[in-house]
Structure formats: structure tokens, C-alpha cells
Write a protein that binds this DNA or RNA. Structure first.
Lengths: 355, 355
DNA sequence: GAGGGTCATGTCAGCGCTATCATGGCGAAA
DNA sequence: TTTCGCCATGATAGCGCTGACATGACCCTC
């Protein structure tokens, strides 16, 4: 008896023998049941069940030069934003043979390039990457990938292949315009990490204020450090130390906005009367905060599932007509930017008593 | 010329030809350089570089019946807790040939079992799974996996193989004891999703209160819904409607605690004077909140990297002596449970003015 | 009824790599 | 010098599966 290296698991040949057919017929019955007569199909299914046969992915990949792996590269695990995209992707792939190969670029284009090279060496069925700011070589790798590629979470003019996202510049512009309409005039910007998408939101902010003749670069407070709630507090404190008359802040993301709110509470600065606060992404907590926080709802889950949908269509040879999908975004206006008619800073009572 | 199915990529035979050796020597040079003479090794390395040769993972896996894939199963992508564990795992695997195959069980033991079966069909090098509450069949699959298995984030008596985590019961007990020591007497419990780890924290809460003769099941408020900040608000509101004299809450996790804080702010209930709040996991925002929130620091990143370390040691045949590692946890006492000496509910001024 | 088309199934030869055993050279021990 | 064993390297035979082509049965058309 031949030695088995695969731990005694049955092979396609075992199934074939048991079903009384050749192994290629079993192979066909598993991949494309239509091409096998109902009679044999049934025999084969039975044999598969009896032997608990599971195809060997590696052998399949080697023989067919194709895999059922979809590579996904995101810049952060910790950022809830990508967790939602990921959920969309995984949910879109449930009940399919596809598997996800997940990479974390840590917001580094170099690391992204490295991951891309690694992933491509496995000839994935498709690739989903966050952002449109690959390195030149990264773009070249993607272009030569030989599989569908979907860039997600951003929008640009020249997709490598397909694209699903929204305009960060437009969303930054929309939030800032909203703050202006709410009556705020000395609007600051809090930004962390300053990745390309953040930069584009900042551009939108800048443009909206410039159009209103109210742009003042001194109100922009950023840091390369990665975003956090504490950082939101620190950044707002810095900003107020430099520009005490600032009456609102557009926070680059929701963590910073929450931190800014906490800082206002600590400094006894009334929100929204003396300070308007807007965040970005509209994480679940924004609606629950007190006061509730204005933000921009970004369709993260939808972007993930849509990307999968497009990728699968492309794999199946039905490339969608629309290669670039703009999912849009939605301003969620809440208490934190509902400025009372009379604009005048108001002192507040103490919020709580702790010694 | 032979047709190439792999897209024209060079194979090990190409490298061998270029280096003037046989392909098995190239194979050895790549896997175990020590076994090849320095002379040939150098020639081979050069050929690899010139051809940009990248080994085919599938062919390697098929021929050797081994892979460089480490399967990881977590119950949620959205929960920040697992994001940190994941970071620990990925960081521990950086600069190694290992790759992660990530599965999301969505807190369903059935789904976990399914994932386990799928992953095992690929003969992973190791498996890291969250929790110790597998189904019976899941446990059997793990036991028969034929690879190192690390259960993480919890602690139990009979590891399938290895285990890294801490006692949820003990941590629940510790938090509750702290609330008692701080002077709170009518302590509630807010819990969402109620997965097994949450249940054990609840047990700890129950035990601590029972020991103090203060246990009242009516103060336990739970829901099978998944955790969120809004839910924290809802649960606290429910609890206070039923048991208005509740003077503190142990929240099953930090999202709920934050929601509870917001609810107190909305209801003008002073924290920590009239209501103590403690969370669980000590996410970054807890220290930044206003008032800052007491929580239990859980070493999530460390658990991830430690699990990888143990798995790699086991793969290399050096199974660690300690199969079960208790990482412990640390109570982080902050403003939200620092009750003033005089215990008496205090009214507060309005926090903010929004019309 | 010959020719041609379609369909279900089979044969065969790899995919790119590694396990296994074989080989030859060389130094140490006898 | 002879013998042995060790080491570096090579030849060979698959790993489990699928692509490409072959085969034969059957049906339709003129």
C-alpha cells in the first residue's frame, strides 16, 4: 500500500473508485455538476459524503493555476472604519468557495507594496485594496496582477481596474459648509496620521473656508501620530491655546471628535453653543454621545460588499459596466453643531463632582 | 517551447539551470542554506535575484504536505478587543514566512465549527482560536488537527493544546470588589451579547456581591443584542427605571460603560458621586473620557503575540513547558469610581445648551 | 444511410515542488 | 594503503488535481 503524505485523507481517486467512475468525472461533478449526468452525479455525491472527501486546495491551485483566494489589504486593524469594510467583504463571501487573505499595511505604502508582491505570488482570484495612493511600483504590480482589482474607500480618476468609494474632498467640503451654515465662523481642523484620505478631507475644509473668505491656516492642527480619543483632547487643547477664539472644529475622524467633546467638558466649554464639533465616519457612538455628535456617515459595510460583488462579477468574466462606483456619503447633523440662534459663549455649571 | 500555465513566472528549474545545479539543490538552498556549500549557495542566491524567483506556495504545500499558514478564528471584527489580539498576531508573524488565514465566527459556535473544518482541510501549520467554548465536535476537530493549537483570551482547566489568557471570572470579581470598596452598595450589571466570557464575568460579579451579602439579581440587565454605546445607554435607562436606587454599574465592556456615562450626563446624574461606572478591557478612550472611566486592562496585544510565539515554538518542536499561560489583568481605577467621602446624590447644572 | 454535430466520459500528461534514495568524493581510522 | 562513514549533490518519482484532447454513443439532416 502506498504511503500517504496527506495524513490519510481520501483523494479524488478514492472517491472515483468508490463511485465507479474516473477521477476527472468526480472533478467535474464537484466543480460543474451540470456537465455530469444526474445518475453519476448522485453516485459521486454519495461517495463524497461517505468518505468525507474534501478537495485539496493546493493540488487544485497547482493544477489549474487558479485559486479561490481573494487578497485584501487594509491599512489598519484597529481602525473601526476598516473593520466595517471587512465585515462587508466577509459577508459578501459567505457561502462562496472564496477565502480571504488579509494584509495590514499599517498605513505604509512600502509595506503595502511588499504585501502586494507576496499576495500576487499566490495568484489570487482578485485583490481588494484600500485607497488609491499606491506607490508607482505598487500600481504597476496591480496593473500586471492578471486578476480583478478593486480599490476601495476613495475615489479617483484613473482606477487600476475598478473602484468603490466616495470623495473625501467633497465630504470635507460638505462638513465645513455645514459648520458655516450653522453660524460658526472661526472653524478649526483637527487631524491625526494625515494619510492621503485625511489630506483630501483637509483640502475640502480649506476650499470651503476659502470660498467663504474665512480660511486661516493657523486653525489647522495636525499630527502624524495615529488617531485616538486622547489625541483629540490634546489637539483641541493645543488649538485653543493658540487660537482661543476658535468656535468650531472639524475633526478628521470620530475618535478625535469624541476626544474634543471630552476636552470641552473638562474645560467647561459649552457644546454646541461655544464650540461646534463635527467628526467623520459616523461610528455608532456618535449618535449616543451627550450631546450627540455631528458626523459624516460613510457606507463602509456597503463598500466592502459592493467590492466583493464587483470582484466576483469580474472573475466570472462579467466586468461591471461602471468601473468606478461613487457610494456617496451623508452628513448626519446632530446636537453638537446645532448652534443656538444667539451666539455667545455661555458658562456652565460643573458637570460632576469628583473631589 | 513548453506552455507555461503560471503566467511566465520562473520555476525552481529555471533557477537551477541558471545556477548550474539541480533543482533539488536550489530547493535545499532556499529552505535550509546550511546544507548547501557556500559556493553553490551564492550562485543560487544570485540566480534567484536575477530571475526574481518566488517559490510557488501551492506546489510547495502539495509536495511537502505542509503549509506556512496559521489559521486564526475570532468571533468579531468590529470588536476592538480582537483587533488588538490580531495586531499582536500579525506583528509576531512579521518577518516570518507565515501567513494568517483569518476567520470570523460571529460568536457562533456552529460557525466556528464550520470554519475549523475548512481551515483544517488546508493543513495549517498552527491554529489560534479565541475562547475555550468550542462545540464538542469543534474540540474533537482541534484535538485531531495534527498541528499546534492555541486557545486565547480565556483560561480553563483543560486546554486542547496550549492556552493564553486570563480569568474572566476573577476579573469580574475584582471590578465588583473595587466598587464595593469605593463605597457603592447597590451595584448593577450591564451586559450585552452574553457570550461565555461575558457570562464568566457576570459570575465573578455575582460571587463578589454574594460574599458581601449584597447580591440582588434584579440589578442584572442583559441583552443578547451585540454591544454598542447606544445599548449602554438603553441598558442603564432600563436598569434605573426598574431599580432607581442603583448607585453603580459594572459594564460588561467599555462601549456599554461609555453609553452609561452618556446616559448619566443626559439624566443629570453625577458620576461618580451618584453613579459609579466601571467598564471592561480598558480601551484607549476610557482614560480620555470626562470623567475618566474605570476599567480592567486586558493584555490583548500581548496575548496575540504570545500565542504566536508559543505556536511557533511548538511548530519547531519545542513545545513550551507551560502550556497554559495566565497573563493576568489590571484594574485601572479612574474618576468614574472615585466616590467622594460623603455619599449623597447631588444635582448638577446643565452641561450644555442646545436650545 | 453516410456525414456531421453534440454530449458524456475517459486517458494522459503535467502543474512546481520536495521526499527518498543513490552516488561519488574525501578525510579519518585501522 | 584500505575501509568506512560522512557529506554534498543528484536522479527519480510522486503529491492530488485539472487541461487538453480522445472516444464512443446517439441524434439529426439530406
Amino acid at each position: 500500500m502506498r504511503k500517504r503524505r496527506n495524513g490519510g485523507r481520501p483523494t479524488i481517486a478514492d472517491v472515483a473508485q468508490r463511485a465507479g467512475v474516473s477521477s476527472i468525472t468526480v472533478s467535474r461533478a464537484l466543480r460543474d455538476p451540470e456537465r455530469v449526468s444526474p445518475q453519476l452525479r448522485q453516485q459521486i455525491e454519495e461517495a463524497v459524503r461517505e468518505l468525507e472527501y474534501v478537495p485539496d486546495q493546493h493540488a487544485r491551485a497547482l493544477a489549474s493555476a487558479r485559486t479561490d483566494v481573494i487578497g485584501v489589504i487594509i491599512p489598519s486593524f484597529t481602525n473601526n472604519v476598516f473593520a466595517d469594510v471587512l465585515r462587508g467583504i466577509y459577508d459578501g463571501l459567505a457561502q462562496t468557495p472564496y477565502q480571504v487573505q488579509l494584509g495590514n499595511s499599517r498605513y505604509s505604502p512600502i509595506e503595502e507594496e511588499r504585501l502586494l508582491a507576496t499576495f500576487l505570488s499566490q495568484r489570487p482570484a482578485a485583490l481588494i485594496v484600500a485607497g488609491i495612493d499606491q506607490t508607482e511600483r505598487g500600481r504597476a504590480l496591480l496593473a500586471a496582477a492578471g486578476c480583478p482589482v478593486v480599490q476601495v474607500m476613495d475615489l479617483g480618476d484613473d482606477p487600476v481596474d475598478m473602484m468603490v468609494g466616495f470623495s473625501h474632498r467633497a465630504s470635507g467640503h460638505a462638513v465645513t459648509s455645514h459648520l458655516l451654515e450653522a453660524g460658526y465662523r472661526r472653524i478649526g481642523f483637527l487631524g491625526a496620521r494625515m494619510d492621503p484620505r485625511t489630506q483630501r478631507r483637509l483640502e475640502g475644509y480649506r476650499a470651503a473656508l476659502a470660498e467663504a473668505g474665512l480660511y486661516d491656516p493657523a486653525r489647522i492642527t495636525t499630527t502624524p501620530a495615529s488617531s485616538s480619543v486622547s489625541l483629540g483632547r490634546d489637539l483641541l487643547r493645543d488649538l485653543l491655546a493658540r487660537m482661543p477664539d476658535t468656535d468650531a472644529v472639524f475633526c478628521n475622524n470620530d475618535d478625535l471628535a469624541l476626544g474634543a467633546l471630552f476636552e470641552c467638558q473638562r474645560a467647561l466649554l459649552a457644546v454646541p453653543a461655544s464650540m461646534g464639533i463635527a467628526g467623520f465616519n459616523d461610528l455608532e457612538m456618535m449618535a449616543a454621545a451627550c450631546p450627540s455628535l455631528t458626523s459624516v456617515r460613510t457606507p463602509r459595510y456597503e463598500i466592502g460588499s459592493r467590492a466583493v460583488q464587483m470582484a466576483r462579477a469580474a472573475i466570472a468574466g462579467r466586468r461591471p459596466a461602471e468601473r468606478v462606483v461613487d457610494t456617496g456619503f451623508a452628513l448626519q447633523i446632530r446636537e453638537s453643531t446645532k448652534r443656538p440662534e444667539t451666539v455667545r459663549p455661555q458658562p456652565m455649571g460643573a458637570l460632576y463632582n469628583n473631589a
